[in-house]
Design a protein around this nucleic acid. Sequence first.
DNA 1: GAGCACTGC
Length: 819
Amino acid sequence: MPEKVHTRFEDSDDDAGKATVRPQKKEQAAAADPVVTEPREKKNKKRKREETAEVKPNTQRVVIRDGEKPRAVSPAQEGEQKRNVKEASNGFNSQKKHQSKDQKMIRQGKPSSSLREKARALYEIRKKLPIFPHADEIRQRLKKDDVMLLVGETGSGKSTQIPQFLVDESWCRPKTVKVTAEDGKQKDVNVGGCIAITQPRRVAAISLARRVADEMGTPLGSSSPGSRVGYSVRFDTSTSPSTKVKYLTEGMLLQEMLHDPWLTKYSAVLVDEVHERGVNVDLVLGFLRNIVSGKKEGRGGIPLKVLAMSATADMESLLSFFQEGFDNAQRAETDSTNASDSAPNDQDSKADEKQRQVAVCHIKGRQFPVKTIYTPDPVHDFVDAALKVIFQIHCKEPMPGDILVFLTGQETVEALEYLVNDYAIGMDPALPKVQVLPLFAALPQAAQQRVFQPAPPRTRKIILATNIAETSVTISGIRFVVDCGKAKMKQFRTRLGLDSLLVKPISKSAAIQRKGRAGREAPGQCYRLYTEKDYLALQETNTPEILRCDLSQAILTMKARGVDDIVGFPFLTRPSREALEKALLQLFNIQALEESGKISSIGLQIAKLPLTAPLGRVLLAAAQNGPNCLLDVIDIISALSVENIFLNTTSEEKKEEAEKARRDLFRREGDHLTMLATVQAYAAENTDRKAWAERHMVSHRAMQSVMDVRKQLTTQCRQAKLLPDANACASLANNQPDPVLILKSFLTGFATNTARIIPDGSYRTIVGNQTVAIHPSSVLFGKKVEAIMYNEFVFTNRSYARGVSAVQMDWVGEVLAGQ
DNA sequence: GAGCACTGC
């Protein structure tokens, strides 16, 4: 029989009970305070003593330099990150004379003395984190309840500390249970033993893992079989057989669920940065709710602890989300017990009731006060307003103190950059100098790095940034924030099937996040280029991505993980019926779903690929056309799945230069074959790829990602027997690409993304008859062909097709007829 | 005549 595991309480601590809650006024008020009452502190001390006594040498707690999670500096630094991780995991900081001894100990799974020392030093810093006094409270609550929600402001230390608080809890130990397999047979399954912490970004997952490994005095990831801390992100997984704490991206956890829907490896899943509300986090939360509120058959009944962590206080919706899951389950259970007429005994039903609570906990962050200054009147031109505020700050406020300005996009950043530099020329020479630094994603890597370098003496840095500085990048030295109150947002319009990229007001929580950037190191000031009234009228939180995007991938993800009834899936925010239906239809059109709505074998294959559903379909279609075609299509898809492989051309002369440099890569068939030529030329370059990229005005950084994706896709296609082994492929390498076969493969996934030319020379979509223009970045821009196929349909100033190739009407007809 | 930000065995 499966080991029956009910969550029981080893103690009925009133204190903990009070804190465990449905939303109660009292508790929230108490929790909002910076907390830490006398008695609790004493209790913690006692608990800590107990713990120290039972700590094994390699569980020694450790470290942290400051409260903030060790965010990497820029997403593009990832390559460097990887290298750093490798260095950290190979060499540590051990002195040479200790190395062999250390390595021996590491092989045995024991921390070296240098690791322990480092950990001990870090422990002193950890102790000062705001979260630290809450360790016992968090342990108590999770011992009792399966679900906990935690609001931990920036700098509270939640992402690094909580896994360490929990890793030695008794419920965190692996157990062997009997589980009924699909074939009806009973089999032994190991359940639990590891804690997963999800992150929205790869850099965060890796750097958190590195920090926590240091704190725990254990080597990182795959560097040693005894390593207790690891991470898993796309292209880079580093874990060991002893991994107890694993940082991973949300996408990676979803991927793991494809093979292990019950997450049997894990005793707990901590979902971090829930407030960012990407699609993946919503899916993860839905799946987790199903697990915690169900019977956990696949886990032999062993609970999975779930801790959702957020930086903003909006926990109401999450609370009712999980509570609703428990309530539904309770109701279903009561119904079935009543039906079978066997009344549960009192104790059990009481236990069940208590088990189905959701704990809530608030932790104050460590943040300096930031004064907010609003404009008295609405601002019409925020670039102009920002210019004035920048110089007002610069003239009035003492040094040091850099200024971070939030703008909407490259265009406004560059406009303001020009204005500030222009104005600075006439500035009083007695004033400190200014250094203007633009920061946006499309900026080349070297230019992005300048933002992190210290300014020359007597110089104030003025960083003009897009949203990239809101979450992805942390810059030190900022004391002043100027917030225009707007951001460019992507919104998928279901009815038109197009993405819009429009400037929209930000939410209150985004405004708070931006403001917070001024108070990381000292008290700061935030100048909002809008009125207080406007602020108060802002939407509370960001619109969840699931309401703003094409849902076909999300739905395929659900179907592939056994959710047949999409309408019955617990969405934290439910998308519109129209959006769901549109996505189902789209999946049906590419044969990923059967008519019944069940996932097809094609759909299952697509779901395993790290691609959007249409691109996955293209890959499978290409496989039907033989290995030659598949290899070429993989090259193109790889280029399509990274942002712009061609460098931006700002000036007119640069543009000409670029055209010249890329002439040999240009293909008249369109962007797809041009990308193929580029990827193949880059891959064939064996001496200096970086120089090659520079010569051709191609982004070396983007091409490195292309090669990563290409490798991943090739490996997966081999595993799926869609491609012969490497040797056989090598002999195909020199074959000439077949443009017709390649483009027809693409049409299988993109038949509805097609347009034909009309007599006035413009293009109209074949399905829907909407006007669409070829994007200026396309090699077909300004060209007139019978019909076009495109990967993206985007609205900015007008409707643009991006990723465009020329096709023939009869090819489109063939594919559409086939659907 | 134009490119918010993330992410995937």
